[in-house]
Design a protein around this nucleic acid. Structure first.
Lengths: 210, 210, 210, 210
DNA sequence: GATGAATGAGCCTTCATTCAT
DNA sequence: TATGAATGAAGGCTCATTCAT
């Protein structure tokens, strides 16, 4: 039984990465990828059923990984006693955010591909997975608490969705702009403060407060 | 004098709009656009020298218009007396933001095209134009005041850029998500509060405050 | 009755000339010609039924003119008394050749178009017209004399044709290479000597002579 | 290993040859060539990067071959002792010319393509390669001898160029006119005599002779 | 007469994908 | 398994020509 030549898959993925980064998903050419890798188009099709799958192979692990990570962080928040949850505006702890940023920088190229080189819709799908996790936790948290943000209409699910999306899009600016780690750290932490402050204006019942 | 058959340009633009919206810039086909419009490929080329120009024709007016609008709003801010500026965190007045939102909703489809269907780089160019206007005003405002955000290193031009980008990207979420006008209004006003709060953490000298 | 705007035809021809010279027949564009002339494609079609006719309009007068000229020169030769003809190898007199060269230089651009910018086949048609005139005279001259070049098989009509073609192609080298008048004069006169010598080897019965 | 289906390349070249011959380079259509060959446009592009390369594939070997042949023949002339050179007007020996003609007839179709169906400039490039070889030898030969053709101004490089071009153009008349071998032989040998006589009028110092 | 919009065939080329070897 | 030849649809674009105005 013929075996896959060792290293071919890796070489193909590496060259695919370069090609996608340089030209974007649509304009990347499988022919060129195969050539760069010193391999053949057929070799790609043995491994991946089509162009989209090849792209996914480069990106899925990181995309799944960060979604899982976020889920875990959020679950840790959910498991906190109610009183502690109520004291926090951000669902990610300081430690949680650190791990999150770590993860992004550890898979920087993959997220670069996702942010800058994927087919239209692919990136937003990715963001939405994160957003859904985030919003789930948020809505559950508010539902469990006595906060009237939802019941008062200050917060709709759709609205929560958009705020979250804005936050995560903001986060991935560090990738889009190739921000060095240190700068990214500072930037994301400030972003959290931004959004913490923002959430305050929603969670707090200003009307009745005024 | 050969006159353009009435309505052909409009029909072409309309069908181009649809095609671009459905398939995105890269996958849109001039052939299909012409067919949809019951016209010919040549009819497109009489009007626009190439595919990119056809797209621009759909989008440029709105893109330029909103940039001009932002500039005007910012200039009005700049012309305010120094004390009044200092009291404000957001450079857009309530009235300014209303006009801004109005403009977006009046050209909703155009911004939809820009946000969701343009070639890679086209959308970010657009956002950057707005961002540059914004950052200019911000940096000048801080330069003219005695605020030490810049001198202390809390704010770099690059950083201001990213924050602004995050803000405007957030704004255009209302377009990406086809938010109805009323909801968009609320959303954007909240976004302002978010960022106002965020800016406070940068403008205020926390270090020395602590 | 609407009248042709004066000078339009001239302008069109002038710009067509330039376009054909620059790009060659196939790659010349009627659209471009009309634009250069500040006129319209329709204006061309009013005057000429198609692209080929426009080209002909630039070139036919010179092509016909030189053919007529050659005919006249050759007829003058034919009308010479038989003895005088026999003494001459070249059918063009010194005076004849001068007039001929004059004509070429007077219509240099037109011949340039013919030689370098016409559609494949057009140039050879032109040359063949000259060649046919030449060969007619030659064959008649030999038929009327007692020369055995033909009867001995040293000269076939086809062969005469080719020799003549080689001569006239050689002649138009002065056009192809933009030779200045003076140089062209010298060159063509040498060419005549070349061919005179060549013809000697055909007209003279070397076999029986040897 | 994917192997090219046998005969496809040959069929493509054959049909390309026909198409180019019938319509000329510009008007030949790759679509038609592929159809004629019962193949696909892609099949052409696997083999040749573009239209020009396909044409070259039909023609280059013959064009290079005859240039090399001419070089070899000329070098043999150059290596002759000075006295023997001086006795010869033509640089090609009888044997040399035979080999040359052989070569043309062995690649008749290829030269037909070159002469009658190539893009403007392609044919003259080809001729100029031969001419440059020829003129090099001629000028060197004259430089090494005591002949005053050059020093007296009777022969300029430019002029030698044109004479040579006229000669080779004349030669390829046998191709342009589909002359049968036997006739071509005779024609070319006569052409040599023509030019031998012509060269005499340049090499001989007529002035001082007179 | 003059215009240039409209046409649609046609151009060369690239592509993802299939499949015989 | 691996190859790359083969495919044919589709790409953007140019063109000579027609014809309503």
């Amino acid at each position: 039984m013929a075996k896959r030549v060792e290293g071919v898959t890796e070489k193909l993925l590496e060259c695919a990465r370069e090609e996608f980064l340089e030209k974007g998903y649509e304009n990347a050419s499988l022919r060129t990828i195969a050539q760069r890798a010193g391999s053949s188009k057929g070799a790609i099709y043995i491994r991946y059923p089509d162009k989209a799958s090849l792209f996914s192979a480069l990106v899925d692990e990181a995309a799944n990984g960060i979604a899982l990570l976020l889920k875990k962080i959020q679950e840790e928040f959910t498991e906190l006693p109610g009183e502690v949850q109520a004291d926090r505006v951000q669902q990610m702890s300081d430690e949680g955010i650190s791990i999150f940023i770590d993860y992004i920088y550890k898979h920087f190229v993959e997220f670069k591909l996702l942010c800058c080189s994927s087919e239209p819709g692919f990136y937003s799908n990715f963001i939405h997975r994160l957003v859904n996790i985030d919003v789930d936790t948020t809505m559950r948290f508010i539902g469990n608490s006595s906060n009237n943000a939802v019941s008062s209409g200050r917060l709709t699910p759709n609205f929560a969705h958009l705020l979250s999306e804005s936050f995560y899009t903001g986060m991935f600016e560090i990738v889009v702009h190739d921000m060095p780690r240190e700068e990214g750290d500072i930037y994301i932490r400030r972003l959290r403060k931004f959004f913490a402050a923002g959430w305050m204006t929603i969670l707090n019942d200003e009307e009745s407060a005024g």
